[in-house]
Design a protein around this nucleic acid. Structure first.
Lengths: 238, 238
DNA sequence: CGTGGGGTTGATATAGTTCAAACTCTGTGG
DNA sequence: CCACAGAGTTTGAACTATATCAACCCCACG
């Protein structure tokens, strides 16, 4: 797990976004320490603060009545979350890689600052726009019709978001189960699809939680559907 | 189609959100007229303006290399769209119910206004936050694992967003094909699922483009229920 | 040295896709 | 006004990708 911590810390150092946007907000921030499995806020909690992940990782998720968990977003260092107009959050945020540092900005004071400080206001709008774009990419990902497409897109996105250097393995902070909940698949399908990608030589599995992208070209080709090929061959054989 | 136009016009009159937020922006707006099938902006176009649908309806979508279309969002009167930090849009917006009136706000001037006018800045942030919440609900909808859940949730959401009065049929501005592209299903599945709901007595199909919700209770039970959230969540339509 | 959570793999079941065909609506031109 | 064409919609039958159920492995940890 030390490797993961290293990568997270490394990414943390190169952060630009929250600094750029949250510069003026620093003085109203309070930083809290969380351990793996802890909850930053619950589904039914009031939306009275914004947050920013400084280290570690979290999942933003809902639990349905049938017990199924859906993950709306993975939150990595630098990601800002918790924006809301309404009262109830509707989604919980839980730490999946700890220890984690999370900054908290009281909503009333943050909004006041956004109105009085032009730079803060602009920064918040930019962050919100980034969230919108990320969520739209997310919708496109979920709208994929095959597990292979979802998995390939997911790996490429995580590669980018984790700020991985080429040929370095991507340290995934989440379990297979989390990936399944994120892609709306079952754990078994996630595992099978990863195995298929490994057999094809597109990726290498380094331990349980790291993936090295070997053939980015191929991965990208799988992410947008392979035209003409019978889909039966994509998962099973090499 | 006259019925649809009526409903759209009716909803237009009761708009509050864009007025509230865009009040100060009115003077930099230019309103354009579009016909069914026309494109407001293309996937590869520069993101240099914000927009607001005044009447009619549109779809925000991407077309994959394999020709499959994915719809990220349906845009109804009152919806503001086109927020972006980046250069390219990545998604096109096309009119699916015309004639449509669409306001256009040049990005440079709009952003300047957001910085100089506190109320405009706050309004934009609120609209962006609403977009974020809507897209998260969208992710939850797409993450549903059965066609029936997707369809039921979709009908409830459209009922809310179209501002339907109870027992009045919901005038859907989109075709079955659009619904399929939105829910990541096939047209045939959409049709079958609607038929099943009709046979169960949950809905009635009024012509091809209208749905009357007969048994909202049953529909809500079939939709994914997120623990802690009322089934037909408050979108911003008053 | 067990124990349990996470991960992989296999066999079977099923929901949704795919292919095909008929039907409905709407607008258009004779 | 009717006939026609085309797009949109519905239904049926076969197929297949993924879910489901089950077994097993591996490793961290008490």
């Amino acid at each position: 797990m030390s490797e993961l911590e290293e990568r997270m810390a490394e990414r943390q150092e190169t952060l630009t976004t929250p600094m750029r946007a949250f510069g003026g907000l620093e003085r109203i921030a309070s930083v809290a320490h969380y351990r793996l499995g802890q909850t930053i806020y619950f589904q039914d909690q009031r939306a009275d603060s914004w947050h920013c992940i400084l280290s570690g990782a979290a999942r933003e998720c809902a639990v349905n009545e049938d017990g199924r968990r859906q993950i709306v977003d993975f939150l990595l260092p630098g990601d800002v979350f918790g924006f809301s107009n309404g009262e109830a959050r509707g989604l919980a945020v839980e730490i999946i890689a700890g220890p984690a540092l999370v900054a908290c900005y009281p909503r009333q004071r943050a909004e006041a600052l956004a109105e009085s400080d032009v730079a803060v206001g602009r920064g918040i709008r930019q962050l919100a726009f980034e969230s919108i774009e990320r969520l739209k990419r997310r919708a496109l990902l979920l709208g994929c019709n095959s597990a292979m497409q979802k998995m390939s897109s997911f790996l490429l996105e995580m590669g980018t978001r984790c700020g991985s250097i080429s040929y370095e393995p991507i340290a995934l902070p989440m379990t297979r189960n989390d990936i399944a909940d994120y892609l709306a698949l079952r754990v078994e399908t996630v595992s099978r699809t990863l195995s298929a990608l490994r057999r094809q030589g597109a990726i290498a599995l380094v331990g349980a939680r790291s993936v090295r992208i070997i053939d980015r070209r191929r991965l990208a080709a799988l992410a947008t559907k392979v035209a003409g090929l019978p889909p039966a061959q994509q998962l099973r054989c090499a």
